[in-house]
């Protein structure tokens, strides 16, 4: 019983951590984008204000049960991914459910939410939502290929599919996988561009084109849930990349430095890129990123 309470507490703490860090990153991203575009931009805590405002609003209408459940679906994905991904090296407190799933499970649980949310967006009947969803799914087929190749290369090279094992291997070797398997890292990093949906891959939300796409019929608490879910998810994904390729983190400060550095990649790439069309985005991932993925697999098999 005590262990159960302890683990629930662990989940809550990681949840709050992920929420705070994710929200701050989102806020910082707005600030950074603004500075690049020579604007002043909102303060970095603007997202917290937005979130509080959205949460305190009472919702008057809904479009049916699936619409109502959509945000809950997407939240499940974010929290589940966060629970499967170890947050720190050898931390007793942030164990969560690390030992209950592996990389391929993670890959699949990550798709649970988008599909659930897609159903919610579908029921609203807003054509923009549905268009956004079809674009998002198409893009997912695109970036999953290099991403899967990277994961398979890791599994071949290190004979394990557990994230914790991969972290331990790096700790033992004293060398990050980023350097020992460079092609794997490149393929995964390029796939990450699609995962984070910044320009040029912001075809799902597509401001000024689709009116924020799948989110467009959601307001108040629904939007708050989606917003916090995407922050948590962003943090989870960044932590996963740090764990897999940058040797994990020994304490929270290191984790934050590493994730922030990683976060800059899609963000800065995005600020200077115009938006792709859907088929361009899909094909992009089947070009160089998949080529590097293939190299990664070959490298893992032969070296």
């Amino acid at each position: 019983m005590e262990s159960l309470l302890y683990s629930i507490l662990g989940v809550l703490v990681s949840l709050i951590l992920a929420f705070t860090v994710g929200m701050t990153y989102m806020g910082l991203s707005r600030k950074i984008t603004a500075r690049i575009q020579n604007r002043i931009g909102p303060p970095f805590y603007q997202n917290f204000i937005d979130a509080m405002k959205l949460y305190s609003k009472s919702t008057g209408i809904h479009h049916g049960v699936m619409h109502h459940l959509g945000p809950a679906f997407i939240m499940v994905t974010s929290v589940m991914s966060l629970m499967i991904i170890p947050i720190l090296n050898d931390s007793a407190f942030f164990t969560n459910m690390n030992f209950h799933g592996d990389l391929i499970f993670l890959l699949y649980i990550m798709t649970f939410g988008p599909l659930g949310m897609a159903l919610g967006a579908g029921q609203t009947g807003n054509p923009n939502s549905a268009i956004g969803v079809t674009r998002g799914l198409s893009q997912m087929v695109g970036f999953e290929i290099p991403w899967v190749m990277a994961i398979i290369a890791l599994m071949i090279r290190y004979d394990t599919s557990s994230i914790v094992d991969i972290m331990n291997i790096q700790a033992d070797a004293g060398r990050w996988i980023m350097f020992s398997s460079p092609f794997t890292f490149i393929a995964a990093l390029l796939a990450m561009l699609g995962m984070f949906r910044y320009s040029p891959f912001d075809i799902v939300g597509a401001p000024t084109e689709l009116a924020s796409g799948p989110m467009s019929e959601n307001g108040g608490k629904y939007l708050f849930t989606m917003m916090s879910s995407s922050s948590i998810f962003a943090f989870a994904k960044l932590t996963l990349y740090v764990n897999l390729f940058m040797g994990g983190a020994d304490n929270l400060l290191v984790l934050i430095i590493k994730t922030f550095a990683l976060y800059m990649v899609p963000l800065l790439y995005g600020t200077v890129s115009p938006r792709y069309r859907t088929e361009q985005a899909v094909r992009y991932f089947w070009g160089w990123p998949s080529f590097f993925g293939l190299l990664a697999i070959l490298y893992a098999v032969f070296f």
């Binding site: 008057g60 809904h62 009947g125 807003n126 009116a211 467009s216 019929e217």
Partner: peptide, 13 residues
Amino acid sequence: FKGTRYVSTKDIS
């Protein structure tokens, strides 16, 4: 959930 009102799919932004 009961407090919210169902609106038709024509009633969208």
